[in-house]
Amino acid sequence: MERHKFRFILFGIAILVGIAAGIFLGWGIIPVRDVNSEPQTLQTDYKTDYVLMISELYHQDSDLDMALSRLAYLGKSPPMEIMLSAIQFADENGYAAKDLQLMLRLFSSIQNP
């Protein structure tokens, strides 16, 4: 009986060690494939450029619904949050004043529709 109990405990420990090794494999060893990424995982500078594109289009067509729909491409975060993050990045990274203005205009329109 004792022997069975001992084997059972060892079996449980082996499973736990295996799980730990598996998680280490999945998170650390197996290289993360950089394919089929979602737009919300884009690097901040690319996200900011996409927001700038949306702002440029909004400047042209003044279609706020369309702009919000385009912003949804960048993830489920609230549009204001996406805009704020992009504007902050653009400001910190020396974007042209004209581009910043475009983004601020869209931000303002979203804030006060």
Binding site: L10, I15, I23, L25, G26
Partner: peptide, 19 residues
């Protein structure tokens, strides 16, 4: 063998979770 079985089972479970 039961230890090896446990290890393999654990690695499968752990990898499935983390991947």
């Amino acid at each position: 063998w039961f230890i090896l079985t446990g290890l393999i089972l654990g690695v499968i479970l752990g990898t499935a979770y983390s991947v």
